[in-house]
Design a protein around this nucleic acid. Structure first.
Lengths: 335, 335
DNA sequence: CGGCTGTCTGTAAACGTTTACGGCAACGAG
DNA sequence: CTCGTTGCCGTAAACGTTTACAGACAGCCG
């Protein structure tokens, strides 16, 4: 933990000024033998430049922050997994914030950006966009990309998914299989995805000419245990022939309950998850799931941010990732 | 993206010196009305202190780096998930490095620590500890905690798991169920866990008085597809009545193959995974799995590091986390 | 030989903080 | 009234870089 050498140390040893040392290390034109002396000194001392000092001068930290609700959630893992290599290739470090979906924490991340510890931010707000979010976003001290829907006109880059289309894909698939009583297990309505999926579900039913039956809808949370409880409540009330779940974890919970109730999947109840995570293929029967392009959203967000960091300002852009439907055994039980 | 106010700006507006501003903002004793003036100016300007400048002076970045092979791997996700809140509570940011298990990348992380962008490092090397690792570790410019086994005498804190005991738990469990022909699907032998588990497997067999049969061992990689292939190769050669897999992903792959071969789990072949991840309970039949305490290892590593950061040097410490066996349907098919 | 070009180098300022030090005013004690 | 003490405050240095600027020197031309 010895104090490392600085350019001053090197300058002394090489018998030149610190300016020359800096020039050599940055590859600026310098006389041949000065280069040699400096390089030799730097090597012998095992010099490594101090990133903090460099950042102070250059006003660039070469760090990008990524804030999400819960790094335990496979959706976010997929995003991080794509974001990381993109940033790394471009020479940026990744600073990870797991906010627990707490509004105050999310706002805090935004505010802290002012400390300039990162050159940019990718944030995926779970708990809606409050007024505070908006204020801070519009006045963000560093380029920011939001993953998830935001109000029109917010002046930041935005990568969203068309959850309406995603839900429609799922319902049309189920409808095509002859299912007419399609339940819906959602997450909290005061979250961005929860609200979006709720609206999309009503919308898609309408498109198919099916009635919206409140008895077929149950709200829990985006986790397995809560999903199971919601499924139990739903099944006490009604007996749908298909269930759409707002993510794969909820679907796993539902699967547990259906199994306990001795209901066959997909014969008695077809089951569809969302996010198309690894869990969908781990489950048995494997889960049909609506892919919302988490990985792609992560990658696109990172690319947008880097572009803005390199090429300066431009109009805020909106990228929409198209959902896909991965059909598996839980709806077409050919297994 | 306007250049934010600095203490100089505040000083000018409040009509005091920058020293006074700094003192007020840091809560040092100051006359009442100076405090008011400074606070007012800071509020009006929306001042946020610059973390980089502060770091340069204090030699503290309030960042901790965590380097692992692959953030897609549930084991590491579990670690990150525990590390994050511990660091956050202590006021540290988390910098994430996903090395892809590449030796050069791992060494690079160690070397880059010299740039002092972080106050400490938690690293979980996948590809053994090479000589380069060792040199850099012993001379690490910042406190470092290694998750995973390292050679005796390496002067860094270390959190390890007793994989020998873990494998023994699994094999004794299978032995207790009457299984005598126990296959083993491992990951690459040139990785830390791969090598450790291989040795542990041989050891545990020996402890049970069972012979080591090379035909029962197959090496692939720590992923599902590779696990499936390894399982196929294994089943072409021999017909074990139980298979231990070096992680849950491999077990999922094996499960796919067993299912395709119409072999019943656990009746024909009992299956045991490792790491006890979420996947183990998502699978069907649910997987018996050896928990190697990823979450706890992550938490302990973070705690060790923070302790060292706060309380300075001390002897290098070794923490060993005891493995646990989660018995599920894939070995005791009561489902 | 004087002056002009050009190349290389050193001095010093700057980035935004924290903090050691000394100055100054107010005040109490003698 | 003087002196010492106390409490605040401002000046300036420092952290480790980068970089504008100017100085030194060589080479060249007229």
């Amino acid at each position: 933990m010895a104090q490392g050498p600085t350019i001053t140390t090197i300058a002394a040893r090489a018998g030149v000024s610190i300016a020359s040392v800096s020039r050599v290390l940055n590859g600026l034109p310098t006389r041949e033998d000065t280069v040699r002396k400096v390089m030799a000194a730097a090597d012998e001392l095992g010099y490594v430049p101090n990133a903090v000092a460099r950042s102070l001068k250059s006003n660039r930290t070469h760090q990008v922050a990524f804030a999400m609700a819960d790094i335990g959630n496979p959706t976010y893992v997929a995003m991080v997994r794509e974001v990381q290599p993109v940033l790394k290739t471009a020479g940026y470090r990744l600073v990870l914030h797991s906010t627990g979906g707490d509004v105050d924490d999310e706002v805090d991340v935004l505010r802290r950006l002012g400390e300039r510890y990162a050159d940019g931010l990718i944030i995926s707000p779970l708990r809606g966009i409050t007024g505070k979010h908006l204020d801070l976003l519009t006045a963000a001290p560093a380029p920011t990309v939001v993953i998830g829907s935001i109000p029109e006109g917010t002046p930041v880059d935005n990568v969203r998914t068309d959850s309406r289309a995603g839900v429609r894909l799922a319902l049309e698939h189920l409808y095509g299989l002859g299912r007419r009583s399609i339940g819906f297990l959602n997450g909290p309505l005061d979250t961005v995805p929860g609200a979006a999926r709720d609206a999309a579900y009503a919308d898609a039913l309408d498109g198919l000419g099916l009635p919206y039956d409140p008895d077929l809808v149950e709200v829990g949370d985006f986790y397995r245990a809560e999903g199971a409880e919601a499924a139990r409540r739903l099944l006490e009330r009604s007996r749908p022939d298909a269930i759409l779940c707002a993510n794969d974890l909820i679907a796993l919970g539902a699967l547990d309950v259906l199994r306990a109730e001795r209901l066959r999947v997909p014969e008695d109840v077809a089951l569809v998850g969302m996010d198309d995570t690894e869990l969908a293929t781990a489950a048995w029967p494997t889960l049909t799931s609506v892919g919302l392009g988490s990985a792609e959203r992560g990658r696109r967000a990172a690319e947008l941010l880097l572009d803005r960091l390199d090429n300066g300002v431009a109009e805020p852009r909106i990228v929409t990732v198209e959902p896909t439907l991965a059909v598996r055994a839980s709806t077409e039980g050919a297994a």
